[in-house]
Design a protein around this nucleic acid. Structure first.
Lengths: 341, 341
DNA sequence: TTGTATGCGTTATCAC
DNA sequence: GTGATAACGCATACAA
């Protein structure tokens, strides 16, 4: 079929030059005379030359591979991040090693170990639960880290996140304007940072509007699923006294709407519901859902760019690298035109 | 923080043995005496040894990396496959390089090039459009291929797919039993193999039941989206004379239900609709959706296992490898209890 | 059972 | 501008 030869040496021989020259036309073409360069290029594709990433990695100590560590790739939120990451990585000439850990430390350890072995140039990690100690395996081999959807603490590294406090404020501001102060919050475990922040934003906005945050009805669910939301909706309907519900993700919001409907409370007529995330569910679900939209693709893209910049910094001067923490703003997407009272 | 030494030599020195011995305890522990083995192991983690995948790859000519090539990771179908793939790869000790190509040949070429450079052990590709010529870059460097969700032709390699013809039959059988022979098909472009097969199954089942397949109303849409489905639903309602609709994916089905509703045709009361894929949309959408369910995770898992087996075959005897084509069966999930007649 | 020696394909440091 | 040549870290054939 195709030629079987491979390696710089074969190319060098065919072009009548040394391997060093071939290497140069590959990496720093400007250093080699146009004439020879042409001969080499000819030989290169005459032989169907394919660089050995392994050899390069061995020699240079780093590969063009970045790890993407997510809890669950079937979750559309993480899938969207992955989309942005792969796109940006493509542009930068990196491969993306997808590591799905299901929040399982054992799995995660093995994956980190593999990344370390491959001498990955870096890793983008989207942590579910916190715990920065887990990252040590990677650091050990000098892999650079970028935290995604979580603000890095001092010296933890770079991070790219979304301002969840602001998101919470936007949601509650909308509900306040639309329906007044009788607001409920349906939230996940507060040990999840995002949940804590969205709640903080909600309370902050209430306070700003002269409403005592403690008057807000709060329901906490273990799993942020549609089913859990439905139960919460049932409970809210039973208790009554609520005109607006802020749910900290779209699944919960979808469930809450159903749970309210079970009890005859109709959305948006009888109550307003706001979700969080702007997943496909918000448009494709039973009802167009008003929700806080996050720039997921952009976050993924930026994570890669941040990592690439960090790697560059390291290489080029040995100069001190300044960790950066990028924070994007969410925005409110109003989808149901709820008739105000 | 941690020791800075690295490399087999350092470990060997510390343990007072040769590098060959260290290499052996790493790769074939049974060959080395328990006593020395222990010493080596001690040295190994005393030094926080991390193997250089690059060196191994260079030496052995292959790396523990497999490529996963999908058109779009935000599509839940591909995400589910990715889930299965990463799980199985984890178990087998492989990393997964995620390549999202958006059906863009240029992108795909670059990604293949990267995989080839990394000397990936193999690649799992989920092709959107056909065209086996595109795979040549990978073959050139001896990378093994497994086609996913598409049956490989002779000598194309191994494949793992789902029997779409059967899926089409199941869907139509259900509709026939429930509503009789006035059936419509809402399908994507027939150039997509899956679409062609699902249609073929539908027609086959009609024929078996003594219904002329050509009496089936057929609507073809360019993009298999909810919006396109909605328009199809509008059209069907306008034309009338249809009791059951088979849509070749869940998005279309969701849209069709809406489109019918726009015109006052209620599902499941006035008409039955069957989707395909069993995505989250089928349970989380406006209406529980009867749909053809595909074993997506299993397909992903099996793809990895197939690849690993193929690699093993190659290595162990140079024995001829028999390409395999695995075909899984879909099943019908009935979700709406549609009152007959 | 263990040690010695060689080479995998590159890059980079020197001479020329 | 270009060519020798020495690593990079490991696996393996062979010798001991």
């Amino acid at each position: 079929m195709t030629k079987k030869a491979s390696g710089l040496v074969a190319v060098a021989r065919l072009a009548g030059v040394s391997t060093a020259t071939v290497s140069n036309v590959l990496n720093r073409p400007e250093l080699v005379a146009p004439a020879t360069r042409e001969r080499v290029v000819a030989a290169l594709d005459e032989l169907d030359y394919v660089r050995s990433g392994a050899a390069v990695a061995l020699r240079t100590g780093t590969s063009r591979l970045v790890g993407l560590v997510v809890p669950d790739i079937t979750n559309p939120f993480y899938a969207a991040i992955a989309e942005g990451v792969t796109a940006a990585a493509d542009d930068a000439g990196y491969s993306v090693a997808l590591c799905v850990n299901h929040d399982d430390p054992a799995r995660e350890r093995r994956q980190f170990e593999l990344l370390a072995q491959q001498r990955a140039a870096g890793a983008l990690v989207v942590p579910l639960s916190a715990g920065s100690s887990r990252l040590s395996t990677l650091r050990r081999v000098g892999t650079h880290l970028v935290l995604v959807d979580r603000i890095a603490e001092r010296d933890e590294g770079c991070s790219v996140a979304i301002d969840d406090v602001l998101g919470g404020r936007l949601a509650v501001r909308h509900l306040l304007a639309l329906r007044g102060p009788r607001i409920a919050l349906v939230n996940g475990p507060r040990t999840i940072e995002q949940c804590a922040n969205r709640r903080a934003g909600a309370r902050k906005e209430l306070r700003r509007s002269g409403v005592d945050p403690d008057t807000m009805t709060e329901l906490t669910v273990e799993e942020m699923t549609i089913d859990a939301g439905r139960r919460a909706g049932n409970a809210l309907a039973a208790a009554g006294g609520v005109d607006g519900v802020f749910c900290t993700n779209d699944q919960l919001a979808t469930g809450v709407i159903r749970g309210l409907a079970d009890a005859g409370v109709r959305v948006p007529d009888d109550a307003a519901v706001v979700g969080y995330g702007d997943l496909a569910l918000a448009t494709d679900g039973p009802l167009p859902l008003t929700t806080v939209s996050q720039p997921k693709l952009l976050m993924g893209r930026t994570a890669v760019e941040t990592l690439v910049r960090e790697i560059g910094d390291q290489v080029d001067g040995g100069r001190e690298h300044q960790h950066s923490a990028t924070l994007f703003q969410p925005s409110l997407v109003v989808r149901d035109s709820a008739p105000a009272t």
